[in-house]
Design a binder for these strands. Structure first.
Lengths: 242, 242
DNA sequence: CTACCAATCTGGTCGGACCAGATCAAGCAA
DNA sequence: TTGCTTGATCTGGTCCGACCAGATTGGTAG
C-alpha cells in the first residue's frame, strides 16, 4: 500500500534525476547514452530503458531514435505526476513547494466544493458519509489517517462531478500526504480534523457554498501551518535538491 | 515536436489500456502476465515491461513481484499525466472530458491570474511580451498556433510565482491543445485570440485582478464553446472509449 | 480431511545481439 | 585551402533467452 515503484526502476529513475540535477543540465541538453547510463549506474540497459520510459511519459526527457536522450523540461517543471514521483523518491522537500501545493489545493478544493454544493447527488453523500465513517474508525483504531484523509478529500472533490478536478487534486493530495504522516500523530489534530470533515459534509448536504468554501480554505491553511511548524521543529528531513 | 512517446512503447501502452477497458477490469483485478501480454501483443517482454513501467508510474497498474500485475485505479481515474497520455494515444475524446477540462482550466487560470496580478515581476512581464511576440509572429507565418498558445498560457500562470499551479495547468493545456489544432485554423479566431492575450498582459501589468479574472474566464469559455461547435460539425473524430 | 512439499508461474534483472538511421570525422576532389 | 562525399561509429528500438527467488498451487503422504 506504500510502495510506489519497483525497486530497481525507481532506483534508476532517481539516479537519473540526480544526475540531471548534479550536472545542472538545462532544457534541450543531452544525457549520456543508455549504454553509458547503464554502466554508470551499474544496472542493465533494459533497466535503464524502463526508467527512461517513465521519464519520457512524465515529459521530463525525450528519446530521439538514433540520436540520444534529451531533457524536455527542467526537472523542476514537468507534469504533476512527475512531482509525485519525485516526492516518492524523496527528491522534493522544498518548503516553497509545500507552500505552492497548499495554495493550489485551496484554489482547486474551494471551487470544487462550490461545484459540489450545486451538483452533489445522493450517491455522493453516501460515499462521503462512508468515508467519514472510515475516518472515525481509523482514529479509533489508531491507524494511518493520512490515507483516509486522501480518500475523504478526493470523495469531496468527486462530488463536483468533475473528473478532471479529481485527477488534478490526486497528485496534490498524494504529495501532501507524505508531509502529513507525522502531522496526524497528534491526537488533538486527528479529532479536530474529523470535526472539520463533518462540517464539510454538512455544508455540502445543505448546499451552502459560502460556508463550505470558507471552511475548506481554513482547514487546508491551518493544516499547512501546522505542518510547517512541525517541519521547523526539525520534524521533517529536508532533502532540498534545488 | 509532436511525437509523444516512442512507437512501440506507446503502442503497447495503448493495447494494454484497451485490453483493460475491453475486459472491463475493475480496481484490484489482475492483468495477464507479462509473458502472456507480450505474446498477445506480438512484442517482446522487454517492450511490455517498458509499457508497464509507464502505467506503474501513472498509478494505473501495480506490479507485485512474484505475483502479478494489478489494476490500481480504474482507467478513468489515475493522474493527470495519465490523461494526457491517453489523449496522446487518441483514447480520450469524450465531450464530458472537454467540459471538465475547460472547467478546471478556468478555475486554475482565473485564480492564477489573480495571484499574477499581485506578484508578477518585471521578468514575468518580459517573458509575457516575448511570448506575445512569438504568438503574433506565428500568426504572420501561418504556423502552429496551438503550441504558442500553450506557451503563452503557461507563461501567464508562471507569473503567479506558483510552480505547482504551472504543473497543474500543463497537462490541462496539453490536452486541450489537441482539440484546438483544428480550432486555430480560422484566421478570425487567431486574431481574436491574440487580442485577448494582449488584454491579459495589460491587466496583469496594471495589476487589475478583477478584469484579468473576468477576461480569462470569458476567453476560455468562448474557446471551449467554439471547439464544441467544431466538434458537433463533425470536425473531430470521437474515439469515445467509455 | 489435513498438512506438507515440490513443480510451476511470476515479476526482476541481466547480457548479448541485430537493425537502421543519425552523427561525425577523415579523406578525397575542386 | 576549402568543400563535399563517404564510411566507421554511435545511438536508440526491439528481440531473445537465461537465471533468480518468492508466490502460488496442486497433488501426495499422513
Amino acid at each position: 500500500m506504500a510502495t510506489p515503484l519497483s525497486s530497481e526502476t525507481s532506483h534508476t529513475v532517481r539516479r537519473t534525476l540526480e544526475f540531471v540535477q548534479h550536472h545542472r543540465l538545462a532544457k534541450g541538453d543531452r544525457l549520456p547514452s543508455e549504454r553509458e547510463l547503464s554502466e554508470r549506474f551499474g544496472v542493465a540497459r533494459s533497466s535503464v530503458r524502463e526508467a527512461l520510459a517513465v521519464l519520457d511519459a512524465m515529459r521530463i526527457t525525450e528519446r530521439r531514435p538514433k540520436s540520444g536522450i534529451y531533457l524536455r523540461n527542467a526537472v523542476e517543471d514537468g507534469g504533476l505526476d512527475a512531482l509525485v514521483l519525485q516526492a516518492d523518491l524523496g527528491l522534493t522537500f522544498d518548503p516553497q513547494v509545500t507552500r505552492d501545493v497548499t495554495e493550489a489545493r485551496i484554489i482547486c478544493e474551494e471551487q470544487a466544493l462550490r461545484l459540489a454544493c450545486q451538483r452533489r447527488t445522493d450517491a455522493d453523500l453516501t460515499r462521503l458519509h462512508q468515508s467519514l465513517q472510515t475516518y472515525a474508525a481509523t482514529i479509533q483504531a489508531g491507524g494511518d489517517l493520512a490515507e483516509a484523509d486522501v480518500d475523504f478529500h478526493l470523495a469531496l472533490v468527486a462530488a463536483s462531478q468533475n473528473r478532471i478536478l479529481v485527477r488534478t487534486l490526486t497528485p496534490l493530495m498524494l504529495m501532501s500526504r507524505r508531509w502529513r504522516e507525522r502531522y496526524f500523530e497528534s491526537d488533538a489534530i486527528r479529532r479536530r480534523s474529523l470535526a472539520d470533515h463533518r462540517a464539510f459534509v454538512a455544508a455540502i448536504e445543505a448546499r451552502d457554498e459560502v460556508t463550505a468554501a470558507a471552511q475548506v480554505r481554513r482547514h487546508v491553511e491551518t493544516a499547512a501551518a501546522d505542518v510547517r511548524a512541525l517541519a521547523e521543529q526539525g520534524g521533517l528531513a529536508a532533502t532540498n535538491t534545488t
